[in-house]
Structure formats: structure tokens, C-alpha cells
Design a protein around this nucleic acid. Sequence first.
DNA 1: TTGCGTGCAAAGGTTTTGCATGGCA
DNA 2: TGCCATGCAAAACCTTTGCACGCAA
Lengths: 146, 146
Amino acid sequence: MSRKDGYQTKQKARVLDFLEQHPAQHITAAELLHALTENGTPMGSATVYRQLEKLEAQGLVRRYSLDDRGSACWQYAGAEAQSGGCMNHFHLKCTVCGTLFHLDCDHLHEIASHVAAEHGFCIDPSRTVFYGVCETCANAASEETE
Amino acid sequence: MSRKDGYQTKQKARVLDFLEQHPAQHITAAELLHALTENGTPMGSATVYRQLEKLEAQGLVRRYSLDDRGSACWQYAGAEAQSGGCMNHFHLKCTVCGTLFHLDCDHLHEIASHVAAEHGFCIDPSRTVFYGVCETCANAASEETE
DNA sequence: TTGCGTGCAAAGGTTTTGCATGGCA
DNA sequence: TGCCATGCAAAACCTTTGCACGCAA
């Protein structure tokens, strides 16, 4: 996968470098743009979006729709992820405080198997997000109610 | 919950009526606006957004981020949904063809229980969307590859 | 040299906000 | 009558696109 991935440019390297160094984070294009601009020569926003688009097509980064606002989030999904390392990884997002939890649990792998077998649908765990309420917020809510 | 829900206006009734009559659909604000404008007196887009915002706060409608584009989707989540009728309802979205499947399966209810018990996170099934590839698209893809 | 990548600016679409007016209670 | 809701327009926001120039191969 190194033949038709386009030219090797500074901007491309900087985007990929930053994402590689923040593998567990989901960052928005705006945050990425801001970080890169702070950390060296400013970059055009169009370039960031175009690079993300290409990197997504190559499977090196992944696009999420986590944000409650209109903005999408991106995450590095490099070598290990492609060989299955991160495929068994679900996300939980608290709809109250907005925190994103990472959940790697054997029990959940059954879901994908079950749905694939019974419903003919192949789930992509790394792209799926469970919405709900985290323990902290649930406790806070129950205290308020009482 | 009828005291502080604001005034009773035509616009509010029209928005809620339309959503009630399309309980299984996820529609965007633009579609809703278009449908309401076609079906009677035109309505300001700001009003639609403000009504959706209030209805969401009251728990009568639900907001999703299904669209790959920037637009959010809305769905009626009225009386029955609140008493548990639609809470056991998951969604599957095919990342290839974009089709949204509705999945009501007992096996999946265990997930919520498990995550709540083991991970202290209370999943809201009706808000959660599984991303993956549906049978049709999977078959189409394998044919192409071969 | 060729052609992709970049940067800037402008356009596109979605959602929010300000302000004067109209309608519910 | 008081106050919320509406409508219009303008703004804010995220993302995409057009075009000329620069840089990798």
C-alpha cells in the first residue's frame, strides 16, 4: 500500500504523525488543525480535510460521528488496528457528560457473532458507539431526583 | 408533564403530529421542514429547530446523529417509548448502502444488562446505532473481490 | 516536466441567534 | 396584559470546491 498513496508531503506526514501520537483520542478536524497550527507552520483547513479523506480511504484513520454538534471526529487506525487489534473495541458515550469510554470486553464480542449469524449483519465494533449514561452521571441524577 | 411545556401553538402541534405519524422513521430537520411546508402553511426553519429542541428536552422526540453529512435525524419517542416499548430496540446502519435496519432481539438485551452490571454504564438502546455491513452489501462486495 | 498537493478564498449546507411582531394563557 | 413563540434575516459553524501556484517524483 505504498504505490498509489500519492506524494509524500510535509503536511501529510504531520497529520499522520499527530494522529499516531494520539491513538486513543478522537479529535475533530478543528482540533487537529489547531494543534498543527500551534505546533509549527500553519496549515490550510482544506488540506487537513483532504488529507483526512485520503487517509480514511487508505484505512489509516477512521471517521466517527461522535460529536453532538455537526463536527466529525477522527482517530488513528494504523497497522495494528488493521490486523484486528482494535477491532474488538467498543465505545461508550455518556449522553449527559459527554465522556467517551473505551470498552474492551469479551462478552461484547458475542454480539457481533450473534448478529452476523442470526441477522446477517456484519458489525464493525470500532465504528459503533453505545449511547447511555455513565455511573457518575447516573448517581448524580438519582441524587437530584430524590 | 403538562405544566411547564410552554404554550400550545399550531406549529408545535404540527411538528409533533408529523413525528407521531411517522414513528419508525428517522427524518432530518430539513425533511421535516419540507414536509410541513408542503402540507399547509410554510413554517420558519428556526421554529422547527426550536420546537425539536424543546420536544427533545421533554423526552417526546429523540435526536440521532445518523447522517453521514452534517445533519441530525429526529424520531418520535412518545408515550409507549417512555414506558419501555421501544427501549428494547437497536439500530443497524449499513456503512455501504446507508440503509437503517431496526433490530428487536432478546439476545441484545443481555448486552445492556451486562454492561450495566459489569461496567456501570446504562446503555440507551434506542439511541445506539451499530455500524457495519448488511448482508446484501457484503455479498456484493465479495462478488466484486472475486 | 508532469501532475498531484497546497493554500486561499468562496461557496455549500446545517443550525443558531437577534429582534420585532403575533398569539397563547 | 404579560410573556412565550414565531418568522425573517443574518450569523456562526463545519465542510467542500475552484483556481493558481508550489513541490514531489
